[in-house]
Computed example of a mutant assay.
Amino acid sequence: MKAGRAAVMKNPDKNAVTIRTIAKMANVSHTTVSRALNGSELVKPATRKKIAEIAQQIGYVPNLNAKSLVTNRSYMIGIFFTNLDTGTSASFLTDVIEQAQSILPKSYSLSINGVDNAMDGQAISMTNFDGIIVISQSESDDGFIEYVHNTGLPLVVLNRVIDRHDINNYAVGDELGGKIATEYAIRLGHRKFGLIQGLPSFESSKQRTAGFMSAVKEHRITVKPTLIKQGDYRPKSGNVMMRQILSSGDIPTCVICENDDMAVGAINACIELGYQVPRDISFIGFDDMGYSKYLTPPLTTVRKPTSTIIGMGVSRLVQMMEDGQPSDIEQKVIDPEIIVRSSVRNMNKTDLME
């Protein structure tokens, strides 16, 4: 009998464990425990650590349903992507979700949605969320952004520069990215370019194309229209468009792909048709997805500062949800950078011409 009781004491029923249980074990008030578990800076770091360790040891699980009833909050954040079903690449989607989850306080959960679904009248109630993040690719999102803004919910718009000054907005310098990618290839001696574009309705594609065109114009390079192809940001379109370029009989020395997914498809097309990369054709991608360094050859690409804008956006959203709407509005554009790997041949070195 004594052994049985001892076992019960060592493994208490998790459902019976409360904040007051932890408070008694830590010899602090239940208010201090509540603050510590929510990461409050009002509690000393050493005390927070002690309370967290006790909570883990006894298997404490916070009751978010009860917590939401008391605070009138859902602890749910809605992330809305442009064209989730057809326009947003799976790799970009995964990258954003993983980074958002790593930054958010553990008490919050994410709900992933498409802007198009919300605007088509599907049952997505804004009352389900404490805050909204819009990963915007297109001006077609503006109606949804205006709708959410009018609800008064904490809102941040990421990825695209929006044409208004009353919403927190963190975006990427896509035009600069397209330009620095092209200028890097030009410095390595490339003068005959192909371009595989992203979705025409996406602002990122428009800006990256503008950067490409700006670079070739400044260097007085003519790009044949037959070497500019319209993709959709997905690997298959990169493969199909590259096959069209190769079948034209007018082979470029370097192809700029407006994201890494299309670059993967394009490189595979070359390999399937007997071309070597980068000896025969060089490639530059965009986004610096996690897999790009592991391709053969590793892909030279433009690193999109996704982690930076996600970090800024999530931090701002949490601030608004916890402390209320700030009087100032933040709007920032973060510059990308070229990540040099092995997929671009240096045409200036004659010993590589063989």
Rank of each mutant, 00 (worst) to 15 (best):
V115I: 15
D116P: 01
G173F: 09
I22W: 03
G285F: 00
Y147F: 14
F212I: 08
V61A: 07
D250Y: 14
F202Q: 00
R303I: 01
G198W: 00
M312T: 06
E203N: 13
P298R: 07
A55C: 07
G290D: 10
T301M: 02
G78I: 06
N348F: 07
I79W: 02
A46Y: 03
G274K: 10
T253F: 09
Q137V: 02
F129D: 06
A215L: 05
G285M: 07
A269R: 02
N38G: 06
V161F: 12
D174Q: 13
N128R: 14
T32C: 09
A266C: 06
S74F: 05
N72W: 13
P154G: 05
N27D: 14
E53G: 05
S282L: 06
T222H: 14
A171G: 03
T300G: 03
S342M: 11
R279I: 06
S74W: 09
N259M: 01
D13V: 05
G87V: 00
T18S: 15
R303P: 00
G4C: 05
D116W: 08
S247N: 15
I135C: 11
L42G: 10
T350F: 12
L227E: 11
Y184S: 01
N83H: 09
Q197P: 04
T47G: 08
D280V: 04
V161H: 11
Q99R: 13
T182D: 06
I284Q: 03
S109I: 07
S29N: 13
V43R: 03
I133Y: 02
L199H: 14
